[in-house]
């Protein structure tokens, strides 16, 4: 008995696979040269950004404030409740993160991994991961890179600003980030959707009185 599938079946599968893949290859993506991409948050060294945030994770809700400080090549991030109770502090580096403090109830590695990864996508300079610029069929400019952390990234640019980020690691883990601006350099609203984790983070920029020099 022939243990291999019928040659006709093999041919059909092969043709089907080729044709299925074809549309992706045919998307009008042309390499572009004259663009540059930088971190969506644009936090200068020593400066900070504060966002009001709500996190929905496996049907649990948590709200508070994200405070992000550019400490040279690292980012210090704190998340605290509106009333001032701290949830966690962490340091985010290019390929790693370190939790400095975390409230016991939140101290779950997959959760902290997902939050750190989401923030890294908007804090890091995309150009640090070697990539190329493309134009798609609608003439949108996309910066594509393979991160050093096994996450493939696509940054969608409009008016020289990143409006959307898509991240993918293997098939299951996907991260979608939408950024909207209101005449500012920094995005006014940021929405993160992490498919593998069923996590959604919504962040809104806060205009607040901040003092990062005087200790009390």
């Amino acid at each position: 008995m022939n243990r291999f599938p019928h040659p006709f079946l093999l041919c059909s599968i092969t043709i089907f696979l080729f044709l299925s893949c074809q549309p992706y290859k045919l998307v009008q993506e042309e390499k572009q040269q004259s663009y540059s991409v930088s971190s969506p948050l644009h936090i200068n060294t020593g400066d900070n950004a504060i966002y009001k945030a709500s996190i929905r994770l496996f049907n649990n809700d948590l709200s508070g404030l994200f405070v992000m400080v550019n400490a040279d090549s690292l980012y210090k991030v704190g998340f605290l409740s509106e009333m001032g109770i701290k949830f966690f502090d962490m340091i985010i580096a290019q390929n790693s993160y370190e939790v400095v403090y975390c409230m016991e109830a939140l101290d779950r590695k997959p959760v902290l991994n997902a939050i750190a990864r989401s923030l890294r996508f908007i804090l890091e300079d995309p150009a640090k991961h070697d990539g190329d610029y493309y134009a798609d069929k609608d003439n949108n400019i996309i910066y594509k890179s393979d991160g050093n952390d096994r996450w493939k990234r696509k940054y969608y640019l409009e008016n020289n600003r990143i409006e959307k980020i898509k991240g993918r690691r293997f098939i299951r883990n996907r991260l979608f980030i939408n950024l909207s601006y209101n005449n500012n350099k920094q995005p006014e609203n940021i929405i993160f959707l992490q498919r593998g984790m069923r996590m959604r983070i919504e962040m809104t920029k806060l205009q607040t009185e901040v003092d990062s020099r005087d200790k009390h």
Partner: peptide, 15 residues
Amino acid sequence: HQEKYMDFLDVTLVS
């Protein structure tokens, strides 16, 4: 008038 000082971030938030 609330001041929240965060030592790790060296930031004081005022609300």
